[in-house]
Amino acid sequence: MSKLEDALSAGGFPLVVEVKPPKGVEVAKMLAPVTGLNGQVTAFGVPDNEHAKMRLSALAAARLVKEAGGEPLMLLTCRDRNRLALESDLLGAAALGVENILVLSGDYVHQGDHPDAKPVYDADSVQLLMVARELMAGRDSAGHALSGAPRFFLGAVVIPEAQPLGPQRLKFRKKLEAGADFFVTAPIFDLEKYRAFRKEAVPEGVKILACLKVPSADEVEKAARGELRKVYSLPPAVIQELSGGDPEEVLAKGAAVAGRLARKLREEKLADGIYLKAKGRPDLAAAFLKAAGF
């Protein structure tokens, strides 16, 4: 059983901190949070060509996190691989000791740095969860027997502020049915909106890692101008608190705000753990931890 699974099932309020695989092969910076924060962090999220921007493979990065002493949570998108590649990467992950997997559809290629690439989406995230379950049962998606079945702790994404909410709830139900063990939300800045979602849409017992993000000054400015086109929103009070100051100050304030949110989420039992996006920087994650009082 992974530490993440263990902590979630024991009500231990785990913290997952995201690392940033490099565009290149210099991995020291990516691993800095692992060496710097390991004692306070349950697992490290490893993005898979995030925002459709090509980077070092999530599978390799996950293994590197493990070798550096951390537990990886590997993200796996449907965008870049057909079912053969998805399945063989899942087996590869299991063989390399990577148990925590978070499946995603994946941002479309136009949003990234290879806009002419062929988008795959052979499976969607619901189907990918089912495929992973099949592997765990000792069969591939075509029904062939495996020599040795992998073991995974499977996560999926949910969007609390989705507009409209109906189709998102449909997908959420299907992900549960397909065997998601836990969910990671889109970034949360607006506690009220998230609280409403949690109350209305999340069945008892479903494990949720609330995603908290340290936004860049650029993102805060966009939000202030009303130009942030995201599936989450920054409430006016948060924008006001974060605005002003140089980019580094904005990041520091962002880490403090995220920490405060984390503390509330924990106190009010609105989440079962946190997934922190802090630019892959150990100093920001440490500032977050301090503000959260973890």
Binding site: S105, D124, V126, Q127, A162, Q163, L170
Partner: peptide, 9 residues
């Protein structure tokens, strides 16, 4: 085939 991605706004 099984519902929206996480992206619609």
């Amino acid at each position: 085939l099984n519902g929206p991605c996480g992206g619609p706004i």
